[in-house]
């Protein structure tokens, strides 16, 4: 399954990667090289084979509903690129 330039752009938008035109072109070539390798498994007839969704064969792992300490606000915000009044500041939304 070869990937088109338009698909590369669509996938980049889904992944929120603002690619330059030359990156799009490069990636189209690279991804198609990789997809050739990957497509080898398309040929396998795997009807009736259950998918393995989880590596550990365990179920029902939960934690008790018990409060644990929170981060101090200064720690929560320590890495914030911008902050104001104890909140994470972001530019305007939408547009």
């Amino acid at each position: 399954m070869a990937i088109s330039e338009e698909q590369v752009r669509h996938v980049a938008t889904l992944a929120r990667l603002g690619l330059r035109d030359e990156q799009v072109a490069e990636l189209q070539v690279e991804l198609n090289d990789i997809l050739v390798q990957i497509d080898r498994i398309q040929a396998l007839d795997l009807t009736g084979v259950e998918p393995t969704t989880h590596a550990a064969a365990i179920t029902n792992v939960t934690r008790p509903d018990v409060v644990r300490p929170c981060l101090p606000r200064s720690e929560a915000l320590r890495n914030a690129p911008e902050q104001q009044d104890g909140a994470f500041l972001i530019p305007k939304f939408g547009g």
Binding site: A87, L89, K92, F93
Partner: peptide, 9 residues
């Protein structure tokens, strides 16, 4: 019309 937003988690 907002200039920016503040996020509280």
């Amino acid at each position: 019309g907002a200039t920016h937003s503040l996020v509280d988690f």
